[in-house]
């Protein structure tokens, strides 16, 4: 088991290293950072001045190593736009996004797991059709639009939840529903087809031939097998929610990492953007690793 984790950890670290290089070069080489700060209409002299002022005239490799070694000393660079160390921005904004990510995954679980189970147990029934309908709808609704419609409904018709801001947990209810809904189709379908496959598997026929039936058959013999892939997908989805928070946070005016990312992009604040891209990637890799470990732990066939 330890060996397995170590192996995966090496992959994660090397991917992280690659991504740090990719992001840095993409944002400092493909895009001219001096031009980005100065703006499109800036004069050549202005751009040159900025280049000197920020040190962009030095070799890109040297700047990368400075940036990358800085990360390990807790120095993530200084934001041009906010005039603050990037690390303090991250610390300020992270709690909102973590709350949002956790709550939205809970929403996904609460909707998709029971619905997927019921649909699989009654294929082609009314509940199956409703579940499929929800999946098709949730897959086709643009996230930001769903947010706006929620605001419209909850501000005008049924004002029970606040529609903007991040002061209390209540403020997170609507955003979590919106962000959570985007994962519902995938997780529900996985739950449904997974359980359906298991129900038709040979070993369930064995259990039936031994006399098991009804809920006992489903819970004792089928559910664990069907939940295995779902658990790891949920972990991955949780990782995805951080990068996916951009839209929801800006619609509901939540001051989290996603909104920070959008504002930094619009302000051409490259130090903040590159750190955020890198941090989101690392978070994703971490949850991916967690999913692998969970899977190996839960599935005896993968245990070492």
């Amino acid at each position: 088991m330890l060996r397995f984790i170590a192996g995966r950890l090496i992959v994660v670290l090397s991917v992280g290293l690659t991504l740090s290089i990719v992001t840095f070069f993409l944002l400092n080489y493909v895009i001219d950072p001096a031009q980005a700060i100065a703006g499109e209409d800036a004069l050549f002299e202005e751009i040159e001045q900025i280049r000197e002022q920020y040190g962009f005239d030095r070799s890109i490799t040297i700047r990368y190593f400075e940036w990358f070694s800085g990360i390990f000393q807790g120095d993530l660079g200084i934001s041009y736009y906010w005039n603050k160390p990037v690390i303090s921005l991250l610390i300020d904004r992270a709690p909102e996004t973590i709350t949002l990510a956790l709550m939205s995954v809970s929403v996904t679980i609460l909707i998709s797991i029971p619905l997927g189970i019921l649909a699989a147990l009654n294929p082609n029934s009314l509940i199956d059709r409703i579940a499929l309908g929800i999946a098709v709808t949730a897959q086709a609704v643009p996230n930001f639009w769903l947010g706006l419609i929620m605001i419209l409904i909850f501000a005008l018709a049924i004002p029970i939840f606040p529609v903007s801001g991040d002061k209390t947990l209540f403020h997170f209810v609507l955003p979590s529903i919106v962000l959570g809904a985007s994962s519902v189709p995938a997780v529900m379908r996985l739950m449904r087809t997974g359980l359906l496959d298991v129900i038709n598997a040979d070993f369930i026929r064995t259990a039936r031939s031994s006399g098991f039936y009804g809920w006992r058959l489903v819970f004792n013999h089928a559910l664990r097998n069907a939940l295995l892939p779902v658990v790891s997908v949920l972990a991955v989805q949780l990782g995805n929610k951080f990068g996916g928070s951009v839209i929801t946070e800006s619609v509901f005016a939540i001051n989290g990492l996603g909104r920070l990312a959008l504002e930094s992009i619009l302000g051409a604040d490259i130090p903040t953007v590159q750190i955020l891209v890198f941090v989101f990637a690392i978070i994703f890799l971490f949850f991916n690793l967690l999913a692998d470990i969970l899977n190996a732990y839960l599935d005896p066939r993968l245990r070492l």
Binding site: L26, I31, A36, V246, A281, N288
Partner: peptide
Amino acid sequence: TCQLALPGLLLAMTIVFL
């Protein structure tokens, strides 16, 4: 793995905008 780990929307936003 690299592609999956990169926050796609965020990266797309950055590149398109810049």
